[in-house]
């Protein structure tokens, strides 16, 4: 996300915005359903609802959020992929549904590279590598040093084959140490285990980790994104110690394949407006989420590159749900 690309993206989306605005008068003549493939109350749900609010205002038609959770988001995503591509059924895709799942679920009924029409890049966030405040790990080096022993160190995740699991696996591969995966069904319970020192470390979204870091219950040793984190600028990117460590969680709005280009652009315009709204700006700032800054035309390539990146990590870690 270089600054030149930022400027390009902003100006591009602005032009698209104008074009879409003219079209938007005819396209949505009935409510739009936005499928959120995760449960209510999750961060993806929160992001989706805020975006849906902004889109409704811009489009003059209600964007109805429908949670359809299951199988790491695959159930809801499959529903959208097999829906009519008229733009009235769209989904909030994530790094999980559009990238990781492809290498984790061998029987995934859809292919994120060919079965979706990307609409807009909504936002992204790096995760924080946190340890309990009572542990002896003051820096990432301490942790890696401890992981060299036979006993190794343990890391919590939100489940097998999730981004938090694969981030840990990547660190293990790059540092060539002994890091033992401890999957938790819920990220919150995993974070509690890190706080109590039961598990050594975890990659966690800044929003739930930051306050506990500030309160001295957790220590943040690294940021998963090479660009660092906006809410925790003092924490060094892991990339500085282990080159090639650049992982972000992201949200990308999409529809089924073969959506008419003008419809996709009209929706892209609405999402862009929604992202600029005060409510979204406010929420993103608080949660450490950066606004999506990618041109409409780059989205397909982005999905492909992410599929490959996470696929490589998953293969190296031999993580697969079969």
């Amino acid at each position: 996300m270089t600054s030149i690309r930022n400027i390009l993206a902003v100006s591009l989306t602005a032009t698209l915005g104008l074009a879409g605005g003219a079209f938007a008068q005819s396209f949505p003549d009935k409510p739009i359903t936005m499928i959120v493939p995760f449960a209510a109350g999750t961060s993806t749900d929160t992001v989706s609802r805020l975006i849906a609010e902004g889109m409704s205002e811009e489009l003059g038609q209600t964007v109805v959020v429908e949670n359809r959770a299951g199988a790491g988001g695959s159930v809801g995503t499959q529903d959208v992929v097999s829906a009519d591509s008229d733009g009235y059924t769209i989904a909030m895709g994530t790094v999980g549904t559009l990238a990781i799942n492809k290498s984790i679920f061998p029987e995934l009924p859809y292919d994120p590279e060919s079965d979706v029409t990307p609409i807009a890049f909504v936002g992204y966030t790096p995760t924080l590598l946190v340890v309990g405040a009572d542990t002896e790990f003051e820096t990432l080096d301490d942790l890696v040093e401890a992981a060299k022993a036979d006993e190794g160190v343990t890391f919590a995740s939100t489940g097998n084959g999730t981004s938090t699991h694969l981030a840990g696996e990547l660190l293990k591969t790059l540092s060539d140490t002994n890091m033992i995966h401890v999957p938790f069904g819920s990220g919150a319970v995993g974070l509690a285990a890190v706080m109590s020192g039961e598990v050594d470390f975890m990659f966690n979204h800044p929003v739930s980790a930051k306050q506990n870091v500030d309160a001295g219950k957790l220590r943040a040793l690294g940021v998963s994104g090479a660009a660092g984190s906006e809410v925790a600028p003092e924490v060094p990117p892991i990339n500085e110690s282990f080159e090639g460590f650049d992982l972000i969680a992201w949200w990308l709005m999409h529809g089924p394949a073969d959506m008419p280009a003008d419809v996709a652009e009209a929706l892209n315009n609405a999402v862009t407006t929604a992202i600029a709204s005060d409510a979204v700006t406010d929420y993103f700032a608080k949660s450490g989420i950066s606004k999506g800054d990618m041109a409409f035309g780059e989205l397909n390539a982005f999905i492909s590159s992410e599929v490959k990146k996470w696929g490589d990590i998953a293969n190296a870690a031999n993580a697969q749900a079969d």
Partner: peptide, 14 residues
Amino acid sequence: LGAMIMHGVVPGPQ
């Protein structure tokens, strides 16, 4: 908890 976060309040130790 999600509702609180959406309303701009983040529960935690503070």
